[in-house]
Simulated assay, not measured.
Amino acid sequence: MKIVNNIKDLKSCIKLWKDSNCSIGLVPTMGYLHEGHKSLIDRACRENDKVVVSVFVNPTQFGANEDLDKYPRDIKRDSKLCEESGASLIFAPSPDEMYSKNFSTYINVENLTDGLCGSRRPGHFRGVCTVVSKLFNLITPNKAYFGEKDAQQLAVIKHMVEDLNFDVTIVGCPIIREYNGLAKSSRNTYLSKEEKKAALILNCSLGKAKKLLKSGLKDSNDLKSVITNSLRDEPLAKIDYVEIVDSISLKPVKKIENNVLIAIAVFIGKTRLIDNFTWNI
């Protein structure tokens, strides 16, 4: 497995693979990889001849008061996981390599980014779409793999690919959880032992919602109240949002008659965590 830090070397590798008619899978990440990322890499390796894992903490998707500087980074740890999973190459550029001094071109997907995390993190998805587009242009993958934990991101990327005619198949992969149900996240490293225990309330509250949906509840406000009240039972939890939206348009729904995404964002202490599930009619 190779690690390249610049675009020139990356393009050289991609050209060799393309000349050999190799299929290429891409797993875009911000590093500090965990079992959730590994599940994406494992699937990419099963479905492609070559797999590129990008490791890049993208500054354009962080807001002014977010955790860009303290976001966990460990390229040696990431390299070990990638090699064990069978990845062919890690692309780990610097911000200067990805964004030139006079960089001024961005991609913005409208409507899908109006609610959920998009409304709480202005400019976030503009940064995500811009860096992912650059990766698609540089690597020209046949398939790209994204986790369903970031459900809004997955929907936005799929829409961008369709709108801009990228020749890549987007593959969504299931949420990977800790043994106790906590969704895997690089930000889990911020949590103290007490906070990690408190964070279990996210999956617990979603579990209560699933039971009610199975029992036939269709009113979104009633369901949101159950989730909200459950989250409020945890003193360390501060709700950012609880939303029930159409799984395609991401617009809020009053009555659950079609497939919906139930998504939550919660601060546990100072750490913002997200979780979700899709309910298919």
Rank of each mutant, 00 (worst) to 15 (best):
I7V: 15
K8N: 06
K8H: 07
D9L: 11
K11M: 14
S12P: 01
I24K: 01
G25N: 00
P28T: 00
M30Y: 06
Y32N: 07
Y32M: 10
L33M: 10
L33S: 03
H34Q: 06
H34R: 02
G36T: 04
K38P: 02
K38T: 03
K38C: 11
I41L: 11
A44F: 02
N48M: 08
D49W: 01
V52A: 02
V53T: 04
N58P: 07
P59I: 00
Q61Y: 11
E66F: 05
D67K: 10
L68W: 08
R73K: 12
D74L: 10
D74T: 05
I75Q: 00
R77D: 12
D78T: 02
L81T: 09
C82T: 06
E84V: 00
S85T: 07
A87R: 02
S88Y: 05
L89F: 10
A92M: 07
P95A: 14
T105H: 14
T105N: 12
Y106K: 05
Y106S: 02
Y106W: 13
Y106E: 07
L112Y: 13
G115S: 14
C117S: 09
R120N: 14
R121T: 11
R121K: 07
P122Q: 09
G123A: 08
F125D: 09
G127D: 05
V131I: 15
F136M: 11
F136V: 11
N137C: 14
N137P: 05
N142Q: 14
K143T: 03
K143Y: 07
E148T: 01
K149I: 05
D150G: 01
A151I: 15
Q152C: 07
L154E: 09
V156M: 04
I157A: 03
K158F: 08
H159A: 15
H159E: 15
M160Q: 05
M160V: 07
N165W: 11
N165K: 13
I170R: 04
G172C: 02
C173Y: 06
I175A: 03
R177G: 04
E178G: 05
N180S: 13
G181V: 08
L182E: 03
A183C: 03
K184Y: 11
K184A: 08
K184G: 02
K184L: 15
S185W: 11
S186Y: 04
R187D: 00
N188F: 09
N188T: 06
T189M: 12
Y190P: 08
S192D: 03
E195D: 01
K197H: 13
K197P: 00
K197F: 13
A198W: 03
A199M: 09
A199S: 12
L200Y: 09
L202S: 07
L206D: 09
S215W: 01
L217V: 15
K218W: 10
D222G: 14
L223H: 06
K224M: 13
S225G: 09
S225Q: 15
I227V: 04
I227R: 02
I239H: 06
Y241S: 04
I244W: 08
I244L: 08
L250Y: 11
K254A: 14
K254Y: 12
N258A: 14
N259G: 10
N259E: 15
N259H: 08
V260Y: 08
V260Q: 05
L261E: 13
I268P: 05
G269T: 11
K270V: 07
K270R: 15
T271C: 08
T271S: 04
R272K: 13
I274A: 01
N276V: 10
N276F: 06
F277V: 06
F277L: 07
I281K: 06
